[in-house]
Design a protein around this nucleic acid. Structure first.
Lengths: 169, 169
DNA sequence: CCAATCTATATAGATTGGCTATATGATGTC
DNA sequence: GACATCATATAGCCAATCTATATAGATTGG
């Protein structure tokens, strides 16, 4: 098969006449929600999704203050306090004193947390493999691309005026 | 307008050397989880995500029995019972007697439920627009495609005996 | 340098969604 | 027609998250 990826079998790529961005995003969110739900229910995972979201944010953005982390992970600060305590006890994150500000902590991802995150991702991939078996290389390609696109957008913070912690540059 | 979409600006589509499927799925789920969370927190929406998931499933699969609906929406049956009662009171779904089986109901999406779902999607799109502003047509295309791909997979139920619609070869 | 004030995190209490266990009513089988 | 089975409903519990508030460190005017 030629890798001419677009317009697959049923010409999907060329028939999105007037779908406005809002609709596209709405669909994307709907399907994302269902996928996340499937993943959560399919892996017998004991950890809450918030745990993995938090670790992933730390991996992507590097050490953050607790408040920054809460905002980035879209939870309230008290929720993040509890979450971080739990993660700290597991050894998955470190609470570093912020030398410049005694009130604050720098939360950083411990190597064991990164390992746990990777393990979770692998487990997830295996658990969901039956659903995605037989995906064409082309489709896999599209999913990789979409992940990256959304990923980039998530780390923006348009609502607050681009706080960008450690310079994402 | 040349719809030559593949291999976008930075040639993303061709540089995924050895990423195995599990990793791709893991990333996809991680990013989906964060997106869903963002959406939930960004719209002041009073309804739980389960409401929208359920309506979306009904829209996609048509009238279902309560138990089937619970499985498709990935919640326990009692949870779906409560959910359906709430949706019924809002007039968003109808509980039709199953003539062939007095124990069961057929839950069907009411037009008003479909309208609510559309309205939610629109609201969502607007709320998240700031994050996705300036997306290239090509990227939008990728997201549409990815939504469709995942969507198709979600409606499969591999656990119950590989329904596989169009043999994936 | 001290007091007033602001900021970062911690704690308390309430709300909610979801689950497991089990009850109820309908089917169908021998 | 009694019994095992299936679909849905109800009861009670747990976990995650939120809002409101307390505490401790930082900052600044005088």
């Amino acid at each position: 098969m030629d890798d001419q990826k677009p317009t697959d079998a049923n010409g999907a790529r060329i028939l999105h006449p007037d779908r406005d961005l809002a609709t596209v995003i709405g669909d994307l969110v709907a399907v994302s929600s269902r996928l996340a739900r499937l993943a959560a229910s399919e892996t017998g995972n004991a950890e809450s999704p918030a745990v993995w979201r938090t670790l992933a944010v730390l991996r992507d953005l590097g050490p953050l203050r607790l408040g920054e982390l809460a905002r980035a992970s879209r939870v309230a600060q008290p929720t993040m306090t509890k979450l971080v305590h739990a993660l700290d006890e597991r050894g998955w994150v470190r609470r570093l004193v912020d030398a410049a500000d005694g009130r604050a902590w720098k939360i950083s991802l411990d190597p064991s947390g990164l390992a746990a995150l990777d393990a979770w991702r692998a487990e997830l991939g295996e658990a969901l493999a039956p659903w995605f078996a037989g995906l064409s290389p082309d489709d896999v390609d599209t999913l990789i691309d979409a992940s990256r696109i959304v990923h980039e957008r998530l780390d923006l913070q348009p609502a607050r005026g681009a706080v960008r912690p450690g310079g994402v540059a």
